[in-house]
Design a protein around this nucleic acid. Structure first.
Lengths: 249, 249
DNA sequence: GATCTGCCTTGATGCAGATCAAAAAGGGAA
DNA sequence: TTCCCTTTTTGATCTGCATCAAGGCAGATC
């Protein structure tokens, strides 16, 4: 089936972009793909660069291809809270909204696949798959946000750190290593300050708790950023989470 | 146009149910409405009753018709965090998930409009409007969750209380009073304990901060539950929020 | 190699909110 | 009315994390 093959070939350059990948391409809708191709473009950002400021005009929606971006809210007096961590395939922006609601920042080098907003919205109207796929992704993000609310509202500093490490480790594991490895090693993509913005702590507390987890043998640090987790189970014991919790389908 | 009129008539009994109201009925899609009618039923709950427990099988999705429900997460040791406050027209449950992820509780007497999940999902596949409407609603909830993350992570106890009061007051205002009233009065639908679960505080702290706001003339209490706000501006000054913040379109 | 600069760690101290405890205020029911 | 029970308030004390303040370390620049 040549259309199928053609799409597969074109898919390469878009990485994990969910719009093409899952909503469109998985169903081999060549027309939709062609349409999307026309309104699509790529943008790259260096680590630390700001993608867009809260309140700025935003005439695109996008999905992360490679790298990590963050969504942050800032209060007038400078207090900051991270409200989203965007990994490859995550979606940024919102159909029907023309201004950014959050600061979007690249924490690593970042490539995004952008779609001009207006034509994208029009396409959504005529292409049910896209709205359905977006709905699924948004519901996942809502679940993640609610898990984070529990963390912010009720967990101790140590539990917060352990939870963050577990999330990063789990994501990394699904990308790289088979699920077998008892020991796992990864690079922290966040500075201590970014971690503190995510966890609702100060960077000093983050640093102290990292040291404490190290002292207690839950983690090993190689340099400031490389983390080794000897036992994922031991880490999970520190998160305060239910040990099972696997009912989410 | 008789179809239109018929739909309007049938709408009455479903209150603010967004599925019929906005996604379906607003477009006068009589077929969809007929389909929805077949898979729909109502359920009532008394104040305090649990609608469903986290982890329970959930073979329906629903929307709140009247009353208020809450979504709560509980940790093994009993720490609780409310992660959602469901008002009339809000949606509960998730297409594609057969188990509840949160405890759902009626905080006031509650009527819900339920749809059997499987047929609802099938309908979503064939009826684009519904997925699009659900997407919109879910994006709104995601924004609300992210605002709540800022509150949980970075606001002081006093700011948290003021923010909650402001949210309830604003909702109430849009239902009842014209936007003109400088003074506004409403009943708190939550106990001190529920407020504390929502805000990530203890009930003692909630009580103390309510007393403090009263002492400072920001609010007046008549009994435990009826709140009067002499000046909405004065209350907003206590929330820590940007005074404008009106860029969200 | 020396110096700089941006992270990160560690220490000392303070305070907001938690915890523990008890009294007060409602609000039904009899 | 009185009693009982739940919810709320208030008080005393404790503590986890924030705040303030030095250093330490590793990678860049000269």
């Amino acid at each position: 089936m040549s259309v199928h093959r053609e799409i597969r070939t074109q898919m390469q350059d878009c990485g994990d972009c969910p719009i093409r990948h899952r909503a469109v391409c998985a169903r081999c809708e060549a027309d939709e793909l062609a349409q999307l191709e026309q309104i699509k473009y790529y943008r790259s950002y260096q680590a630390g660069q700001t993608v867009i400021w809260s309140g700025d005009k935003m005439d695109f929606v996008a999905s992360v291809v490679t790298g990590i971006a963050t969504l942050t809210q800032t209060m007038e007096d400078g207090r900051r809270q991270m409200v989203g961590l965007l990994l490859p395939s995550d979606f940024v922006g919102r159909p029907g909204r023309s201004y950014a609601a959050y600061d979007v920042t690249a924490t690593t080098d970042l490539v995004m696949c952008c779609f001009r907003r207006k034509p994208f919205e029009e396409m959504m109207g005529s292409t049910p798959h896209i709205a359905q796929r977006l709905l699924e992704m948004t519901l996942d993000e809502l679940d993640a946000a609610r898990e984070w609310m529990l963390l912010l509202g009720r967990k101790t500093a140590r539990e917060k750190i352990a939870s963050l490490l577990a999330i990063i480790a789990r994501r990394d594991a699904s990308l790289k290593q088979p699920r077998t490895a008892a020991t796992m090693t990864f690079d922290l993509p966040l500075t201590r300050e970014e971690m503190s913005d995510y966890l609702g702590l100060t960077l000093e507390t983050v640093s102290r708790q990292m040291s404490a987890l190290k002292r207690d043998g839950i983690i090993t640090l190689d340099g400031k950023r490389q983390v080794t987790i000897p036992s994922m189970d031991a880490l999970m014991d520190e998160t305060g989470d239910d040990s099972d919790g696997g009912y989410l389908v």
